[in-house]
Computed example of a mutant assay.
Amino acid sequence: MSDTAPKEKTIVIEIPEAVGVFDSFADLQAAIYDLRAAGFSRYDISMLGDEEVLREKLGSAYWRSRDLEDDPHAPRAAFVSEEAIGELEGAIAGGFFFLGSAIAWAALLTPLSTLAASIAAVAIGGTPGAVIGSILARRVGKHHKDYYQHQIENGGILLWVRVADPERRDVAVKILQGHSGKDVHVHDWSE
């Protein structure tokens, strides 16, 4: 890595960790779902942090997945499923539509307001809110896709799984390899 990378203390614990690199989000997601079904906690599963965090922690050095597989300084992040991102996008878009409509209703709930005027105001007030919400929701989805695409372009999506005993280690390795994980191996520590 770069000499310009900030030096900070990294806490390493003596629990083995399985590592795998994935060339597609679909394979990664399938592996994570199988790990969860096999009893691994979401707290045992981590991924590489996003590009901004990588720059903060490792400096401006060019990185490849293979360089970070066994690096205790590699920043970690939790896995976020496509379903969770979809729910977030829906909540953002729907929330802005609701907010615009609620403001319009509140403004028009006067004794002089007619039902037709109130309905028109809700439609007019809710539409800009829905548009703003949709734009923000798309940005969230794009950031999520860009996160994975950037890792694929730099050698693959990294996945680490804490494996406290030999039986769990074997299960994790088998799942990672079964979903096209490359360079699957175990190191004796985890962050």
Rank of each mutant, 00 (worst) to 15 (best):
S65K: 07
G94F: 00
F79S: 01
V12F: 02
G181T: 05
G49A: 03
S81H: 01
L112K: 13
L99Q: 08
D165T: 00
E87V: 13
D183S: 10
I13C: 07
L136D: 02
I157Y: 06
A123S: 13
F97C: 13
N154M: 11
R168I: 01
G126E: 03
A5I: 07
S2V: 13
L112Q: 15
P166K: 05
L35N: 04
H150M: 12
R64D: 02
T110G: 08
D146V: 12
L158G: 01
E191N: 14
L159V: 09
Y33Q: 14
D23Y: 05
A77I: 02
V173Q: 10
E82M: 13
Q29E: 15
W63T: 00
P6F: 01
S24Y: 02
D170V: 09
I135H: 04
P166R: 09
E191H: 00
K145V: 14
S41H: 08
F79E: 05
D71M: 11
A18S: 05
D3I: 12
E56P: 07
D67I: 09
V173M: 10
G59E: 04
E69K: 10
A137P: 04
W160M: 00
Y147I: 00
G178P: 03
G90L: 05
L115N: 13
P72C: 06
I119T: 09
S134E: 11
A106Q: 10
H179R: 09
R139N: 14
A5L: 03
I132T: 11
M47V: 07
R64P: 07
V21P: 07
L28G: 05
G39Y: 09
S41E: 09
E82C: 10
A123G: 15
Y62V: 13
A107N: 13
A172I: 07
F97S: 12
A123T: 11
E17T: 07
I119A: 05
A117T: 09
A18E: 02
A102T: 07
K145R: 14
K174G: 12
W105C: 15
D70S: 15
Y43F: 14
G49F: 03
G181Q: 06
D23S: 13
D27H: 07
H179F: 08
T127N: 10
R42E: 13
S60T: 14
L176C: 08
L28V: 07
I45K: 06
L112D: 15
V122T: 09
F25N: 05
E8S: 12
A38V: 04
Q177Y: 06
